[in-house]
Design a protein around this nucleic acid. Structure first.
Length: 215
DNA sequence: CGCCAGGGCCATA
DNA sequence: TATGGCCATGGC
């Protein structure tokens, strides 16, 4: 059963790597900006952009900021024309909640997710990253690493984002801290191990994988 | 030099 | 529904 396997992999990863303490960021708003900036972009480049933004890191300030200035500041993160537009679109929506994180935190998670997805430039992964890592809401983030890692380990992964998410929501208890750690661990392991050993051969997950999937 | 990174939108069939 | 093109920088 792949749900047991998914639980088990979490235990293995947390045992091996320990807690990851995501998301790196000084405030929920910075996490939201990072979530947009990191779309298809390496985190090291995002860090440069966030550093450039650091003295302006308040929603009202960036909302008022000249577009050309914003473009220039986030340039290192790549796709800077599009991302500047996406940040402005997000802030235009956020203004409706008085740029107040606490107001978002009081909302029903399904309603809020729907609103985030309605913003141009916010898709499934970015929305869920904001919900989980900026607002501490219990939702599992699915990304390319998650799909690749588990399909390589032998778990059949659906095509639709929501279907993959359901798989993890079913397998793991609904717990924000665990969802937070698990996704971070998947990213950590994917960067550290799977990139060097594309089939996950010989890594410490191999035995558990053989036991559950190939038994 | 080429490849890719913690996606998402849009046009086309 | 499902591909394919596009956006762009910096690390390796």
């Amino acid at each position: 059963m792949s749900t047991d396997f998914i639980q088990c992999i979490y235990e293995e990863l947390i045992g091996f790597y320990g807690p990851q303490g995501w998301w790196p960021g000084d405030s929920p708003f910075e996490v939201m900006m990072g979530a947009i900036l990191t779309q298809n972009t390496s985190w090291t480049n995002v860090e440069k952009a966030l550093e450039n933004l650091s003295s302006y890191m308040e929603p009202q300030v960036i909302y008022m900021m000249d577009m050309d200035k914003l473009r220039k500041l986030i340039r290192p993160s790549g796709f800077y024309n599009i991302k500047a537009r996406r940040i402005k679109a997000f802030l235009e929506w956020f203004k409706g909640y008085n740029f107040c994180v606490n107001e978002l935190g009081k909302m029903d998670i399904t309603t809020l997710r729907g609103e985030l997805l309605g913003i141009s430039g916010i898709g499934n992964e970015t929305a869920d990253s904001i919900l989980l890592y900026a607002l501490d809401m219990p939702i599992f983030v699915i990304d390319a690493y998650t799909r690749r890692m588990f399909s390589r380990l032998g778990v059949p992964i659906p095509k639709e984002y929501e279907d993959v998410q359901k798989l993890f929501h079913t397998a793991i208890e609904k717990n924000t801290a665990i969802y937070n750690e698990y996704h971070a661990l998947i990213v950590r392991h994917s960067k550290e191990c799977c990139r060097k050993k594309p089939a996950c051969n010989g890594c410490f997950l191999k035995n558990i994988c053989d036991f559950y999937i190939h038994a």
